[in-house]
Design a protein around this nucleic acid. Structure first.
Length: 925
DNA sequence: GCAAGGTC
């Protein structure tokens, strides 16, 4: 592009030339005009342009010796939009696949036409154009939009770009004297993204909306015609994070683990010692170690460490952190936070709220910002203390690794004790910004931490205490805390008796659903969205009914959201993963630095996406199947797939006003699902081997709440074991063992059979719950005896971890034993305790792994058999669990501490507190 | 009626 003749400055013999300056937003136009008009003859004048928001500032300035008359106006972000030509814009105007090569155009939309007129009118009067857009790729792209409009009005413009890294006077003065040319490559990278986003988004959105809306009854709280089932390269991966975590959460199977805890009471307080092995999942192993400890309970202090610990204040505040912290501290949604932050920014109380930067420029006058806050009733005195050199509270803030080169971290720009027009959230957000800023320039909190390690019968335990010496930044950053705790004083080599020594159990917990802060972190790591748009993508999931927020502010997918991700996943596409966006980001980088050309990247990407789209459409059956799990077929559909379902089986136990109905999925499998949506996702899974099913008028006499209508099933002979009948009058209310057994034997059809890695095996909560709750009650599917499940069937090769190792590893093979927990090799060691001296055990070599097993127990000659351990573990009243601590101490324990206090402990074999396992009369029974 | 990116 030609930018007009001549360099900048020095060439006009002292006659002022007219310069049009354009910023990305009105606030920047105002701020830069303010800096550049300082000490200039005539000062700063302001007049209206065509747009009421975008004023025109006028002043004189000299650029490289050239006197200039500056007119400074602004746009509001992008001036132009990209869209398809009119003939492709109506949804039914073309096949969605045509959108990959349909002609597109960039144009100034109607609501920006007044800004366009201002630019045209001003450009005609000027010789130069200086672009003050933000110094990022989007800014560069907007610069070229401005250039296009302005040069159409005045072909002779000499076009310059001002580069600045912050709105600081020195930076701006420097930038105007060092003008450069705009960078076409940066703008190209954005053009690339815009076009790919548009074509992919529009094609998939039109396709899936039209297809699914016609095929299913998607009963949302919106007019059917307004229902849009959108696809976007940012919104779908965001949904993917939500669904993936939901699947992890639902497929979690709680596992019981065991740990040994030791406490020690003295006049100075109590120390809680944690077992340094953490915990064992195998009760037998834990019990063996516990036995060793309880038999030689004398504690020896082996290590005492005292050190100063620092808790550092947070980094300067970026948008992402503002959103995360407002969600954590105040439960404000990111979208609402940004709305409130925008208000505060517009009113001048805080700096620009859309910034990635998490470090202050050295040129920022941080003390001046603190100075302003000294009068505040809540934090004013802290601000005063910060500025007092004698207090020693000041610390130059740390810098993070992010810098958008356009905006500083979010900080207060004007003092306010609180404005009358502010809502509670305005108050809270302003307070967060101020306190965060004050914290950033403060010393870290300081504490003395003492950690004590002890040894009981060769087992290591540790405890620590903390004394806070100086709260420092925590005094003003009241949203965070740092607890102190006291432990008694110990000396190295000191010996004592524990007050309690208990074998405690716990269960593993599923990973929680994603919180707002978690979701933002996922998006940030994967590069989904920008600081200014991440909250919009999250909001879009809610607006499109893809996800809901639970009462504890976590995201759970709706049936629609889960079905979409499931459908694409079944098709084999990772369009719901962040990879597409990551690829686009890397292509954008390559284009912006000139290693790839825009046209080539665009061509390749669109070709790939078009092929993907065609394939996805050919495989829409998968999407259909996934949707059919949750939704009723619509009679609008022209599809010939039959649906025999719809008969009511019972009222839904979750959403009581809806019915659970028997349905047949397109793949032929049967299921019972709830009609209530989106609140309810209750599904009861049926065996995959059903050929026919019909709801009868028989009501189950066992299951409550009733009525629960029985279903007459016919199974396919070859798909069920010979000892089951093909005809079965079954009940889905929970009383029917046959159904549950056949689910375990045959699976539930498509969902479990096609389950992919990473997806929870239970596709829904009720499925997962059914699987886990049925475990305790059902008969074994191999021997049909009750009392154990197939996992623990004595007549079938065990499938448990421990048993597998026992089968595949020779008992005495030192190098062939692998850890049950992490799979690493174990080494053979010899115990050196009084009761087990000389006895050999395997222990895992992997750092941080706890696995440990007696060699002789691997022959089945364990002093505690597996069956014993199980039955012991299943009776909480008999095990040394959390509930046993006080009971154990009160009962007649066999050991007393040095102070004569009885030590809690019970026989781990039978639970009796009167003896320990080595002399247990019930041993081996 | 569709995306994501600016911004008011």
């Amino acid at each position: 592009m030609a930018y007009g003749g001549g360099g900048c400055g020095g060439g006009s013999g002292g006659r002022a030339i007219r310069v049009l300056n354009v910023a990305e937003k009105p606030s920047v136009a105002k701020a830069v005009s303010g800096f550049l008009s300082k000490n200039q003859q005539g000062g700063l004048r302001v007049r209206d342009g065509r747009s009421r928001y975008n004023k025109i500032f006028e002043f004189n300035h000299t650029v490289n010796g050239q006197p200039c008359h500056m007119s400074f106006t602004s746009v509001t972000g992008h001036l132009m939009e990209l869209d398809f030509d009119d003939r492709f814009r109506r949804w039914h105007s073309c096949d969605p696949v045509d959108l990959y090569h349909a002609s597109v155009r960039k144009f100034v939309p109607e609501d920006k036409s007044d800004i366009r007129r201002t630019l045209e009118e001003e450009a005609r009067k000027c010789q130069w154009l200086i672009l003050w857009l933000d110094c990022d790729r989007e800014g560069e792209n907007i610069a070229f939009e401005v250039i296009e409009v302005c040069t159409q009005a005045n072909r002779n413009l000499n076009v310059w770009r001002a580069r600045f890294s912050a709105l600081i006077e020195r930076e701006i003065q420097n930038s105007v004297q060092n003008l450069v040319r705009p960078n076409q490559l940066f703008a190209d990278a954005v053009d690339l993204r815009q076009e790919i986003d548009l074509r992919i988004g529009a094609s998939f959105t039109r396709f899936q909306t039209m297809f699914l809306r016609d095929a299913f009854m998607i009963n949302l709280a919106t007019d059917d015609r307004n229902l849009v089932i959108s696809y976007g390269p940012c919104q779908f991966p965001t949904l993917g994070f939500v669904v993936e975590r939901y699947w992890e959460n639902q497929s979690h199977e709680a596992e019981e683990f065991w740990t040994i805890n030791c406490t020690h009471n003295t006049d100075e307080g109590t120390a809680n010692f944690k077992w340094m092995r953490g915990h064992f999942f195998d009760y037998t192993c834990a019990a063996i170690v516990y036995e060793m400890c309880i038999q030689e309970p004398t504690v020896t202090v082996t290590e005492i460490k005292e050190q100063e610990k620092l808790k550092y204040p947070p980094l300067p505040l970026s948008t992402l952190e503002l959103e995360k912290r407002a969600s954590r501290f105040f439960h404000m949604s990111p979208a609402h936070t940004m709305k409130v932050a925008e208000d505060l920014y517009q009113a001048g109380f805080i700096s620009y709220p859309r910034t990635e930067t998490d470090g202050f420029s050295e040129k920022t006058d941080l003390r001046a910002i603190v100075f302003e806050q000294q009068g505040h009733p809540l934090w004013g005195s802290y601000a005063q203390l910060l500025l007092n050199p004698e207090a020693g509270l000041w610390r130059n803030p740390s810098s993070g690794r992010h810098d958008d080169k356009a905006h500083p971290p979010i900080h207060p720009t004007r003092f306010s004790p609180g404005e009358s027009g502010w809502s509670r959230d305005h108050h809270r957000l302003y307070e967060l910004v101020v306190r965060h800023f004050l914290a950033c320039v403060s010393q870290p909190a300081k504490a003395a931490e003492t950690s004590v390690e002890i040894d009981i019968a060769g087992e290591a335990f540790s405890s620590s205490g903390r004394v806070i010496h100086a709260k420092n930044y925590l005094d003003v950053y009241t949203f965070e805390s740092w607890g102190g705790s006291m432990i008694p004083t110990y000396t190295l080599g000191q010996q004592f008796m524990p007050t309690t020594l208990t074998l405690d159990s716990g269960v593993t917990r599923p990973p929680p659903l994603l919180s707002e802060a978690d979701l933002l972190t996922c998006m940030d790591k994967a590069g989904i969205g920008t600081d200014a748009t991440m909250h919009e993508h999250i909001q879009k999931l809610l607006d499109r009914h893809y996800a809901i927020k639970t009462p504890d502010i976590r995201f759970s997918p709706t049936n629609l959201g889960e079905a979409l991700v499931m459908g694409y996943d079944d098709m084999g596409y990772e369009l719901w993963k962040p990879y597409l966006r990551a690829m686009m980001e890397s292509d954008m980088k390559a284009v912006s630095i000139g290693t790839k050309r825009k046209t080539e990247v665009l061509e390749t990407c669109l070709q790939q996406m078009k092929a993907c789209f065609i394939d996805a459409r050919a495989n829409k059956g998968k999407l259909f199947e996934a949707m059919a799990i949750f939704f009723e077929r619509s009679n609008r559909s022209n599809d010939n797939q039959h649906n025999t379902g719809g008969d009511v089986v019972r009222k839904c136990s979750i959403c009581h006003e809806s019915d659970l109905v028997l349905k047949q999925k397109p793949d032929g499998h049967f299921m019972v699902g709830c009609l209530g949506f989106p609140q309810c996702r209750n599904v009861v899974w049926l065996p995959g081997s059903i050929s026919q099913a019909a709801v009868t008028h028989d009501i189950c006499g066992i299951c409550t709440p009733g009525p629960v209508f029985k279903i007459q099933f016919k199974f396919r002979r070859l798909e069920i074991p010979p000892n089951y009948n093909v005809d079965h009058l079954g009940c889905i209310g929970g009383c029917d063992d046959t159904l549950r057994q056949l689910v375990e034997i045959c699976g539930t059809g498509a969902r479990t059979a096609s389950s992919v890695s990473g997806r929870g095996q239970g596709a829904t909560s009720s499925n997962s719950a059914q699987r886990s709750s049925s475990r305790g009650r059902m008969a074994c599917v191999y021997c049909r005896q009750t009392g154990h499940s197939s996992d623990f069937c004595p007549s079938q090769p065990s499938r448990s971890h421990t048993a597998r190792n026992q089968e595949t590893n020779p008992p005495n093979g030192e190098s062939s034993i692998h850890c049950n927990s992490c799979g690493e090799p174990c080494v053979l060691r010899t115990a050196n305790t009084a009761t087990n001296r000389g006895r050999k055990f395997f222990s895992c070599q992997s750092q941080g792994c706890n696995f440990f097993i007696w060699e002789d127990s691997m022959n089945g000659a364990s002093s505690v058999s597996r069956a014993n351990a199980r039955s012991f573990a299943s009776n909480p009243s008999r095990r040394g669990g959390r509930g046993s601590r006080t009971g154990g101490r009160a009962s007649g324990a066999a050991f007393v501490s040095a102070t004569g206090e009885p030590i809690s402990g019970r026989c781990f074999n039978c639970g009796d507190p009167s003896h320990f396992a080595n002399v247990c009369p019930n041993r081996g029974r």
